[in-house]
Design a protein around this nucleic acid. Structure first.
Length: 468
RNA sequence: GGUCCCAUCGUCUAGCGGUCUAGGAUAUCGGCCUCUCACGCCGGAGACACGGGUUCGAUUCCCGUUGGGACUACCA
């Protein structure tokens, strides 16, 4: 491709949170711009004042930041750029490529129905095209679009797409209240921001010829287009609130790492041979629109979970510890000691799949009084284990350095002397120390907990057994 | 209804005419490892929607059928 400077943009409308479909579109734009050493712009499409909100805008920005999709320019707000749109619309009127129309919405609706009843296309009939109307109340401005010919473009993902012009009607550019319509605003902004590549959802394929007509009327250079397929819900219908867990921020709150979500999103639609895991740098290096698939896909939650677990395992333990703090706090653990937390997380990062799980799994480290899972308690804290546990406790109390190595040695001695197997004592001890039947290795747990806490918990378990 | 887009294991995908008795990942089922749970390792089951062409040869190219999806507003 040419050496032109690449400029892409992500233009969400702030009518709700940023969902994973939008996030993927943003990601692809970001990836493409970064790959080509170009510019990535964030633009907020808030021309629909009714449905737009500041909360949504903030949520979108927060989501972008959390995902690490940094933008070079913006955010631009369409609501503050009306003069630009009006200027462009004036240009079109002056050059005769747009005209005023005073057909009322009700009238239009009636004519549409009539047309449909007669088996015709429900498009604008061009009534005001040649009336030479001027501005006035209740008037809109429409594009004078070509009556014949075809509009075509080369989609970077889907290949050549052509639409007969008689499928397209004279779309409204400016509403009667003076505001620009979506199509007008998009084109005007893309022109003025110098957008070279429009990478957006599949649902815009049909809009593209319309927008190209506006470019042509304006005499502006048409950008390259790439339409990425939709993301579907598990039932293969378009992703919506119905499918739950839509918002990017919801994934953050469910304890997913941004890198894992990004990786999962990238691999939904894009591929690089058989490779599944990509660092950001690798993604940027290897991304191309040619290797984005053309068919819609279902978001695979199980795969995200697996990826997240992998990213957690690969994480630096310090960073992971930092990340889990808010989740621990939610569970009532306040200001955990940093070095203790790091040690605790070190024993768990191989086994927890999300930060939420990690926090839950780590809870026993931080509780003064652990509670026993009822089934674990009933099965393992039974009278038969009281004697060996007491002996074990004695052996443990004699250990000098309470680290894994010393603990293992002490256990060897204890098991040899008592004739017990580790298997026989492991689960009762585990329940005593953690309250559960599943936990990190006993020696790891004990080292982190420390001698005092270990002896104390065994005391408590013995008291429980004997008190039964 | 019209227009446009799409179609490989349950899911995400590799495949860009012969290398395909179709590869990987995830999920699932066995087994190993083992103090539990994970991790890891080994193995199993599991897909080219259908029908026509083109070709010496189609998962791969073309057409049709079917099935999905999108758009068809003074929403974006």
């Amino acid at each position: 491709m040419s050496s032109e400077k690449v400029v892409t943009r992500f233009p969400p409308s702030p009518t709700g949170y940023l969902h994973i479909g939008g996030a993927r579109t943003a990601l692809f734009n970001w990836l493409f711009a970064r790959r080509r050493g170009g510019v990535f712009i964030l633009r907020i499409e808030d021309t629909d004042r009714e449905r737009s909100s500041n909360e949504a805008t903030e949520a979108i920005i927060e989501s972008m930041k959390w995902l690490g999709l940094d933008w070079d320019q913006g955010p631009f707000f369409q609501s503050r750029r009306y003069p630009l749109y009006n200027e462009m619309i004036e240009r079109l009127i002056v050059s005769g490529r747009a005209y005023y129309c005073d057909c009322s919405p009700e009238d239009l609706e009636r004519r549409r129905k009539e047309a449909m009843a007669r088996g015709l296309k429900p498009k604008y009939d061009g009534r005001c095209r040649e009336r030479g109307l001027g501005p006035g109340p209740g008037t809109v401005v429409r594009l004078k679009s070509p009556l014949s010919g075809v509009t075509h473009f080369e989609d970077l993902i889907k290949g050549p797409i052509r639409v007969s012009n008689d499928e397209l009607d004279d779309l409204v550019l400016r509403r009667s209240d003076g505001s620009p319509t979506y199509h007008m605003a998009v084109v005007a902004d893309d022109v003025s921001l110098g957008i070279t590549h429009v990478i957006r959802g599949d649902d815009h394929v049909n809009n593209t010829p319309r927008q190209i007509q506006i470019y042509e009327a304006l005499g502006e250079k048409i950008p390259h287009y790439g339409h990425v397929p939709m993301i579907l819900g598990p039932d293969k219908t378009r992703l919506s609130k119905r499918h739950g867990a839509m918002s990017v921020l919801a994934y953050r709150d469910m304890g997913y790492l941004p890198d894992a979500l990004i990786n999962a999103l990238a691999r939904l639609g894009w591929s690089y041979g058989d490779q599944e895991k990509f660092s950001r740098e690798e993604m940027v290096e290897k991304f191309s629109l040619e290797s984005v698939g053309r068919s819609a896909g279902v978001f695979n939650f199980e795969k995200l979970l697996d990826l997240n677990a992998w990213y957690m395992r690969e994480s630096d333990v310090e960073a992971l510890s930092e990340a889990v703090i808010p989740f621990l706090e939610k569970l009532g653990v306040e200001r955990p000691d940093k070095s203790f937390l790091v040690k605790a997380v070190g024993t768990l990062k191989m086994r927890s799949k999300t930060l939420v799980d990690l926090a839950k799994d780590a809870l026993f480290y931080f509780q003064d009084e652990i509670s026993y899972e009822s089934s674990a308690r009933d099965k393992f804290l039974v009278s038969q284990v009281a004697v060996p546990m007491r002996e074990l406790q004695k052996a443990l109390s004699r250990i000098e350095g309470f680290d894994q190595l010393a603990l293992e040695k002490a256990f060897e001695g204890f098991l040899a002397a008592s004739g017990l197997t580790l298997k026989a004592i492991a689960q009762p001890l585990r329940v005593s120390l953690t309250g559960r039947t599943a936990s990190p290795g006993l020696f790891e747990v004990m080292e982190v907990l420390g001698k005092e806490m270990v002896l104390k918990r065994i005391d408590k378990a013995l008291a429980f057994i004997e008190g039964k």
